[in-house]
């Protein structure tokens, strides 16, 4: 059971994360991407909403990636915990 009081909570990464070139190369190789650049990123995740529908718990999480203090990507994920 999820805690509805967690809505609005932000879980920030503690440090900037730099992916290694080999990690990036491995990921790009899988999808056939040739443009590989190392990017130090900071990540934070925020629980944006929580609701229950027909016994299913539905939680939406926004993940923000920052580089050099600028937001570069926001990704929303909606997760369902089935009843």
């Amino acid at each position: 059971m999820l805690n509805p009081d967690s809505v609005g909570s932000t879980f920030a990464g503690t440090d900037s994360v730099t992916l290694s070139q080999s990690e990036i190369d491995a990921f790009c190789a899988v999808i056939g991407e040739s443009n590989t650049t190392i990017a130090p990123l900071k990540c934070a995740a925020t629980i944006e909403s929580y609701r229950v529908a027909a016994g299913n718990e539905i939680v939406s999480v926004r993940s923000d990636l920052h580089r050099d203090g600028k937001l570069v990507i926001s990704a929303w994920s909606t997760l369902v915990v089935r009843a």
Binding site: E23, A26, F27, V30, G32
Partner: peptide
Amino acid sequence: VFYLDRALLKAYADAS
């Protein structure tokens, strides 16, 4: 058309 096989899933699992 992309083609997926078990080897690609393993590679993605390792990369991700």
